[in-house]
Amino acid sequence: MTPILEADRLVKVFGATSALDGLSFTVAPGESLGLLGVNGAGKTTAMNLLLGLTTPTSGTVRIFGLDLWKHRIEILRQINFSSAYTSLPSNLLVWQNLTVFARLYRVPRPKQRIDALIELLDISHLRKAVTGKLSAGESTRVNLAKALLNKPRLLLLDEPTASLDPDIADRVRKLLRHLQAQDGLSILYTSHNMRDIEEVCDRLVFLHGGKVLTEGTPGEVQARFNRTSLEDFFIGVARGEIDAIGLP
């Protein structure tokens, strides 16, 4: 089966710093893949390359079998993105922001789609709220509504549960699982929250120094390195203990 996303030998060099050093991985249709790594591992750089925000020094990105840089608009129409570090224009109302993005993504019958998402994400009461006055949890759900407007085939999420309380974070995870099961949505997910990864992701790719350190299901990775939990594995890498064990 053709992967939804295929990153092939991605290299990104910023001056004297190598941010990605031959990164390759794939996301299968309907799969939820976690992109993990300690700070500076290359997750954000990889995400930016996959979104076409940054150009690679070398290597290719194919999404839906198409070269990202040759078919950028066609691809962007079928994917979407949400990050804890971006926001919708704070000075507009929620419905205004969603209307603008529905039109940008050429969503058919935008009003019905917005209504459906507002219902799904339980944010009906926020329709006429000023976007800049939302709480972190509300803002995350509105950002997710924007990211789901075009019924994306691939959703890229950059720490979507950062700064959310456990209740809202749990709701977001369940929602993503629901969408994945219902619509066959593929997800690329970065997070520092290991619970997110364990609950949402079918498989993970762990980056270290711009390369893939290991990949597999959360259980496989944990077992491969003889760790009690994914979080324990993460801490092991961060503290240099995994290097001491050596790569398989």
């Binding site: 076409g52 979407n80 224009p89």
Partner: peptide, 9 residues
């Protein structure tokens, strides 16, 4: 408004 990324993606 930190919206530039949303527009560029």
């Amino acid at each position: 408004t930190r919206n530039l990324l949303n527009v560029f993606v």
